[in-house]
Amino acid sequence: MKTQISSLASPASVEVVSRKAELKKKALKLQARNLSLQLLVFVVVTGSWQFLSSQKIIDPFFFSSPFDIVKHIWTWAVYGTTAGPLWLQFLVTLEETVLSFILGGVFGIIFGYALGVNDLLSVILGPYIKMINAIPRVVLVPIFILWFGLGMPSKVASGLVLTFFIVFFNAFQGVREVDRNLINNALLLGASKGQLAKHVIIPSALTWILSSLHSSFGFALIGAVVGEFIGATQGLGYLIAQAQGAFDTTGVFAGMLILSITALIADLGVSKLEKRFIAWRYVRK
């Protein structure tokens, strides 16, 4: 054992260093290739869209074109939209999304954990949760608008019901999947119920919960936008609904583009969160 350690700790030879540089170069090359291929896909898709549209092969009225969409966003950004400045619409939707994401996540984790560790509770509530989950959540949105009005609360509620179930089922499963040996080991080492949760169950379930957060942010966004679509006075969903009402395809696409960029950025944020909380999953093996 001792010899193993000393050989690991000994200073790296020159050969190793040059080998390292070579490997690094290879990795960079690979990255550059992937990035350029991704860019190529973008250029081909938007390029042909633009070409087909400007040559009138497809009807620009129904299909718009990438340039027009970007121009439309630019106009919104500079001159404002029918509902006020663009940044405000963006902020409203983002706020609704983040709020419903956080609330849905927190409730999902709490309920998932509680039902995961408590058999009686999961037996009692199980069928009801399955029943509620079977309802297509979008039909709840009109009810939320009736209950909470046209403002933010109804959008947060619709985003919340969408995110809640995803996080809930993952948290529940995560708690149930904890290795029995690890629980037994912690109990023998003297863990109380609270300590068991802190040291074993929650860290183990976090992998499941965090992977659910990726999709649930998307669903929070869907909830907010659908809410705005059905009844609102501002927000990106409202803008899209307005554009649709005016047969303004470019406006619809512009709203969609902003939404997808938002979702992409949020996904990056969740990935960061994931790396921070389950660092042990990302260590080099």
Binding site: N185, L188, H199, P203, L206, I278, W280
Partner: peptide, 19 residues
């Protein structure tokens, strides 16, 4: 209940992978 005077080395894993 749990035997507080014992510790156990299991066949599979004892170590918590997140620690």
């Amino acid at each position: 209940g749990i035997n507080q005077r014992a510790a156990c080395v299991f066949q599979t894993e004892n170590a918590f992978p997140w620690k």
